[in-house]
Amino acid sequence: MDQTEIDALLAGGGKSPRKPKAAVPAAPPVPAPQGEPHKDGSGHVISELDTVTAVTERESNKVMDQLDQISRLVSRQQELITGIMRHEGAQSPGVQKAIHEVMSAGKEIQDKVFEAMDLMQFQDITRQKLERIVHHLRQIHDYIVDLLGTGLKSDAERPSISHTIAQTGTTPDENKAHADAVIEAYKSQKKG
């Protein structure tokens, strides 16, 4: 929800605001939450977490759209500068040097854009960590249902989850050496 929507919601006393017609690229709709309906506390929390996940994925894709756009613009700029470089009036050493500096700055921007795109992996990692929390909430919910002998157990299908989130890193390649060592050990054991 952006500021326009929040302002409209506040002004309308909690009624749903109208969608702002911002010039942003079309983003995929937020899928319906998979958790239980708001029958009880855990279903509500699961549903909220699903919404958080869906919204962050949608917003991350908007950031990716913007980064793609910057990348395309920088490429276009590099093409234009290459054209200028070949121009008869741009052959003096001073102009050529300046053009090379602009080209090099453009490349630096492009590299930073790619770096920013790679950093967007945090969205998927956070999503999977939330999925793990949802898994625990559902276990608690089902345990309470069993204990009290009343209520409905969780039934919505969820993605599989990792055994633990404790080992999930946040820095790129944090676990590379560990994974490579396991692969190496497995392959040598198989050979032997």
Partner: peptide, 14 residues
């Protein structure tokens, strides 16, 4: 390509 970093996960995948 996954977040699963535990040794048993890697071996299971292999």
């Amino acid at each position: 390509v996954t977040t699963n970093a535990a040794k048993e996960d890697i071996v299971e995948a292999l």
